[in-house]
Design a protein around this nucleic acid. Structure first.
Lengths: 242, 242
DNA sequence: CAGTGGTCTAGACCACTGA
DNA sequence: CAGTGGTCTAGACCACTGA
């Protein structure tokens, strides 16, 4: 490990983290108070405080006035989920990526769909349907709608060259996103497009993205169940790792 | 919003964040240098630095020596995924929760399974199978293995009272977890246990948890596709929210 | 009410790196 | 090589809250 070049607050942070990970400091245990740590590491209070703040921000400890700082009891209620950017990942690993464009239409939003009406915000929607093809194999069906009012520039993009997701990611800063994961059986059409038997279990990823309160895009991606896994890894220090 | 009681570094952070969100500061744009911000907010460099460090930790800006700080170009490659603790969530919302224990055995790991051999680490495994039942409805099938070498205390726990996941979460500090999401068709047995037609699309959550390098538990949870969604939300500032 | 953490200052020296 | 961020100090005042 890089030991020599680490800053002092980083070394203090790591040493406390190591004590917590090793079990020397059990959940609920009290962390030495700032004055003790100042003496132990021979540094100022600001430096100790920076290390403790980082641990608190990572959820490893909890700080309470008058009482002190304590090792958190772990609560695995959330994890960092890696959302695949199929195009970027395929190319990064040297594979062939292709977005097979099936349909592209400018439409008014469906009046009965609250989601579409919100997304459109009084303007038209660009509806794009296509298949993500990796190394010649269809991997996922994508059904996307983009608000032309929010993103007029999308009207001129050639989606046979770049997938809509990759283009949007690179051009439109988002501020909020919501992803929903579920499972669904492939209907006849989806099955044919993905080259799987009808009724196959598929992983469905639905994502909506906003910029401030304005909707940008809404997408539904359907993966054949066995062809793609989404993996989330978590280590306590990851929440701070850059 | 709470405006009066906010600390100065927090106000600086929020104001810069607001400029970024509003588009006044576009991705790639240069953030005023620390000296400018010191003048603008009439504060010391440490206070400005704290605000900028927080923005950098949240991924909103990138700091480069000599060059300055710049608004990041968004990369939505990971999101915080909320993993349900069915027991805690059900009880929190006033529902009835029950873990219907189907099987409980102490077994040696299967020699042909690398995963089981690693988890067992030379000791036996506790295998637990049960169904999460919420308000009388079966919601998920859980198939779990726990390393008795790593967690001897688990041998004495009554899993008709507490679900294994909830017990482990409260008693064994983990340091690393990996979650895999996929879709699979319900076989006859799973379908019967969940009360759905055979072949139904199910969302499968597989999670392995470690304490340091030692495996603690490995679990596979099968949800009927329409009965449970997993939702991940992301806002840039969330990575710092407590 | 005393001990704890939260914040802030005014300064300092340094490391990095692009003009 | 000068401008920028990274780190650190020694102190200060304050807010909170449990013994």
């Amino acid at each position: 490990m890089k030991l020599a070049k680490l800053s002092l607050h980083e070394r203090i942070r790591r040493q406390l983290e190591a004590r917590i990970m090793s079990g020397a400091l059990q959940p609920g245990a009290r962390i030495p108070v700032e004055q003790q740590l100042m003496q132990e590491f021979g540094c100022s209070r600001m430096t100790v405080s920076k290390a403790l703040s980082a641990l608190a921000a990572a959820g490893l400890i909890e700080r309470r006035k008058r009482a002190g700082s304590f090792v958190s009891r772990p609560r695995v209620h959330s994890m960092l989920l890696h959302i695949p950017d199929l195009e970027a990942e395929t190319k990064a690993s040297g594979g062939r990526y292709e977005f097979r464009l099936l349909k592209r239409q400018v439409l008014p939003p469906a009046r009965q769909s609250k989601l579409e009406m919100e997304l459109a915000d009084g303007g038209p929607l660009l509806a794009v349907t296509g298949v993500h093809v990796v190394n010649g194999q269809p991997l996922a069906l994508e059904q996307r709608q983009v608000s032309l009012k929010a993103v007029p520039a999308v009207a001129d993009v050639d989606f046979t060259v770049t997938s809509p997701g990759t283009w949007l990611l690179q051009h439109i800063p988002w501020t909020e996103a919501e992803t929903r994961l579920s499972a669904a059986a492939a209907d006849r059409r989806v099955a044919a497009l993905l080259g799987v038997p009808a009724g196959s279990a598929c992983l469905v990823v639905e994502r909506r993205t906003w910029r401030r309160a304005k909707g940008i895009t809404s997408v539904r991606q359907t993966f054949e169940g066995r062809s793609y896994d989404m993996v989330a890894r978590f280590r306590p220090s990851d929440s701070r790792a850059r």
